[in-house]
């Protein structure tokens, strides 16, 4: 299923694992100023649990499946 580059079938774009992780990384940097790996580590450690509903946190958290 994964290919070297993203392929678009005219309706959806199927990202490679690397591209999916890059997507998470990009958005984590955009909204939280940290890389995707750092966000995943902190999220799993509960470091955002004081207020996980903050818009910037939720936007990145919803993209977690791209980084796992």
């Amino acid at each position: 299923m994964a290919t070297q580059t993203a392929k678009a079938n005219g309706r959806i774009r199927e990202l490679t694992r690397e591209q999916a992780r890059a997507l998470l990384d990009r958005q984590a940097r955009r909204y939280l100023g940290m890389g995707g790996d750092e966000f995943v580590r902190k999220w799993d450690a509960g470091e955002f649990d004081d207020n996980p509903d903050r818009p910037e946190v939720m936007r990145v958290a919803m993209l977690l499946p791209f980084g796992r």
């Binding site: 299923m1 678009a8 309706r11 959806i12 774009r13 199927e14 990202l15 997507l23 499946p65 791209f66």
Partner: peptide
């Protein structure tokens, strides 16, 4: 375009599209 990160198989963790 919608982007999918390889979520075509059953799994315990959710898949995502954006």
């Amino acid at each position: 375009v919608v982007n999918i990160g390889g979520g075509y198989h059953p799994a315990d963790e959710p898949h995502a599209l954006t």
